[in-house]
Amino acid sequence: MSTNTPLPPEALDEWLAALAAHLGLDAEIIPTGLLLDVARDVAHNVARPAAPLSLFLVGLAAAQAGGTAEDITAASAAATELALGWPATAE
């Protein structure tokens, strides 16, 4: 079933836990706040469409490094650093 109704904030953890389980991942290592911060920084400093794609790359980098919580944190920090230093585009 498809809906255009956004997910309420209180349901976010439930959704992520269900998706993680469905994908065979450990939901306990998902730093939701950190990943949302990365998405925000990329969306505001690079481009909105770059946010989900950047989180995909963060996930790939973390998995390649070993997939631990520390790997997710390191990949997130690298993405945030790059996004915050990204040159502003002319408007």
Rank of each mutant, 00 (worst) to 15 (best):
S2D: 12
N4D: 09
N4K: 09
L7F: 08
L7V: 15
P8D: 06
P9Y: 10
P9E: 14
E14R: 12
E14Y: 05
L16Y: 04
A17W: 06
L19W: 04
L19A: 09
A20M: 02
A21L: 08
H22W: 14
D26I: 01
D26E: 14
A27I: 06
I30F: 06
P31D: 05
G33T: 15
G33D: 13
L35S: 08
L36E: 12
L36T: 08
D37F: 07
A39Q: 13
A39S: 11
R40E: 08
R40W: 09
D41M: 07
V42Y: 02
H44M: 12
H44T: 14
N45T: 06
V46M: 03
R48C: 05
R48L: 10
P49H: 08
A51P: 02
P52Y: 00
L53A: 08
S54D: 06
L57C: 08
A62C: 00
A62I: 02
A63M: 10
Q64N: 14
A65G: 07
G66C: 07
G67L: 03
G67F: 01
T68G: 15
T68D: 01
A69E: 13
E70T: 10
D71L: 01
I72A: 05
A78N: 12
A78P: 07
A79V: 06
A79H: 04
A79E: 05
A79L: 05
T80V: 14
E81R: 14
L82T: 12
L84N: 13
L84Q: 14
G85S: 07
G85W: 00
W86C: 11
P87N: 04
T89H: 15
T89I: 14
A90M: 11
